Simulated assay, not measured.
Amino acid sequence: MKEVMAIVRMNMMNQTKRALSEAGISSMTAKEVLGRGKGLVDYKLLEGAEKGYEEAVAQLGQSQRLIPKRLILVVVPDKLVSKVVKTIVKVNKTGKSGDGKIFVMPAMNSFSVRTGESGDSVLDEV
């Protein structure tokens, strides 16, 4: 089993949640986080640059501000990792800086507190 950790734009959370659910992945955890990638994006500057303002274009990349994001955690059997990653990418890819990151990490085991089950049986099985 693997843990898929995705960091996406705040405004993409509902679409991402819906797409994962439609793909058969209903179990997830989401959290509001702050961060920045290597692009050092300031969204006000980015918006100005997209409109063609030279001042905004010149200042892109100089911001150290942390940007509000959503962190999504999904633990799935190995066979569903590709489906989860592809679904998240499909929904969140705009081709612009700040689209997010996805990390896939091993998960050693999982347990259901309510039933006492463990392993893949407590995960989404599509």
Score class of each variant (00 low, 15 high):
S97G: 09
V75Y: 07
D120S: 11
A56V: 08
R114M: 07
M10C: 13
R36G: 05
Y53I: 11
I7N: 02
K83F: 00
R36E: 07
V122G: 02
S63H: 04
K69W: 03
V89C: 07
Q15D: 14
K38W: 12
P68D: 02
G119H: 04
E3P: 04
S118F: 06
P68Y: 03
K31M: 07
R36N: 09
V4N: 05
V76T: 09
I88S: 08
E125T: 10
S112K: 08
V57P: 10
K17Y: 09
M105N: 12
S118G: 05
S97Y: 11
S26F: 02
L45T: 10
V41R: 14
V104K: 05
Y43C: 00
L60N: 01
K2H: 13
K90H: 13
P68R: 08
L73D: 09
G100C: 03
A107F: 04
L45D: 11
K31T: 15
S121T: 14
I25R: 05
E55N: 12
G39H: 14
Q62G: 11
K38T: 14
L46W: 01
G35K: 10
V126E: 10
S82K: 14
R9C: 00
A58S: 06
T16P: 08
E32I: 12
V57T: 12
A58I: 09
G48N: 08
M10L: 08
P106C: 04
S110T: 09
G52Q: 11
V89D: 11
M10E: 14
A6C: 03
E3H: 05
V74D: 03
Q15V: 04
N14R: 13
N92A: 12
T87P: 04
I88T: 07
M12F: 05
A23F: 04
E50D: 02
R65A: 15
E22S: 06
E47H: 14
T87Y: 12
S27L: 03
K2R: 14
V76E: 02
L66K: 06
K90A: 15
Y53F: 15
S26W: 01
S121D: 00
Q15L: 10
P77L: 00
V89I: 15
L80A: 11
K17G: 00
